[in-house]
């Protein structure tokens, strides 16, 4: 039985001109133990989808089953088995780290004696043991995020939903968090996360969908998506903001496909080094040049015509 099963899942909001489709009929199936990503720019419908999966937002139409149950009728029962890391931490900053975990566990009806050892495990897991009796307001952003993750695990969930788990964190804090999530993956918890960071999706997701304007525009593993929607390598060249447009027509015939961004030109190719030499041979000396492997960023650009960096 899939953990998440959705067919033609739709969320519409009324607007002045009729209605706006935040999620426009998507199909999803997530199996137990999978780590699944929903990738998309801001406003693509990721968070709306997550909230419907989390049984805190009613769908407008379509089918949706979470852990085999219908969230519109069995919301509390479903939520008892979910762990949720919302975009905002929603911690009580006036209480201590431990008190936040304790009160949250109590919401699920867990007894204090059940929670005592569980909280110790979780504090160890998110490396906040030395902050246990500090008030949350004194914690850094990364620590608060880790606490929110610990909190989401307090009921031993079979499905963990993470909405933009590392947005706003510094690189080091992100890596600590990824490491923890990677460990969770190993324990067999089903992970579903939304992100607009491509590196995050590549690190954490076995399979992902790309959403754009409420629809799923591609689905597969990171490697499959790169293979399908991008070339093997990418040459990035910068000639300066003015000259990029001038140079572009003179790069014809180099690579499989050329993409002009505001600050750089991307050339999709199988032979990056050779193509870069060809550019130089044609008399164009880039200010900076880089040959790299294709990433999900390139897939996203191809599929949506937008760079995530523009967001």
């Amino acid at each position: 039985m899939p953990v998440i099963h959705a067919r033609a899942l739709t969320k519409a909001y009324p607007s002045a001109s009729g209605e706006v489709l935040a999620v426009a009929g998507i199909d999803l199936d997530v199996s137990p133990g999978e780590s699944f990503g929903i990738l998309g720019a801001n406003g693509a419908g990721k968070s709306t989808t997550m909230r419907m999966i989390g049984a805190t937002l009613q769908r407008t139409s379509g089918e949706l089953a979470i852990l085999g149950r219908d969230p519109s009728r069995e919301g509390p029962v479903i939520r008892a088995h979910l762990g949720v890391v919302p975009q905002q931490d929603t911690l009580d900053t006036e209480l201590t780290v431990r008190e936040n975990l304790l009160t949250y566990g109590r919401y699920f009806g867990l007894s204090r004696s059940q929670l005592r050892p569980r909280i110790e495990e979780l504090l160890d897991f998110v490396q906040l043991q030395d902050k246990r009796d500090e008030r949350v307001e004194a914690l850094s952003g990364g620590m608060k995020r880790r606490l929110t993750i610990a909190r989401s695990l307090v009921n031993d969930p079979s499905l963990l939903l993470l909405d933009e788990p590392t947005t706003g964190l510094d690189p080091q804090a992100r890596h600590i968090l990824w490491d923890r999530l990677y460990q969770l993956r190993e324990t067999g918890v089903t992970l579903v996360l939304t992100t607009h960071y491509m590196d995050e999706a590549e690190q954490l997701c076995e399979r992902l969908v790309v959403m754009d304007a409420g629809r799923i525009v591609a689905e597969g593993s990171p490697a499959e998506l790169i293979r399908q929607y991008s070339s093997r390598e990418v040459v990035e060249v910068r000639f300066g903001a003015q000259r990029n447009t001038e140079v572009l027509p003179q790069l014809q015939g180099i690579g499989d496909r050329v993409e002009l961004l505001p600050d750089r030109i991307l050339i999709y190719t199988a032979t990056g080094e050779a193509d870069l030499q060809e550019i130089v041979a044609r008399g164009h000396m880039p200010i900076t040049a880089l040959v790299r492997r294709a990433s999900l960023e390139d897939v996203f650009l191809r599929l949506t015509g937008r760079s995530l960096a523009d967001e």
Partner: peptide
Amino acid sequence: WNKVFIGMRATSLT
């Protein structure tokens, strides 16, 4: 302010 109700609502509470 701290939106704790959003966190609570993600549990089995209504």
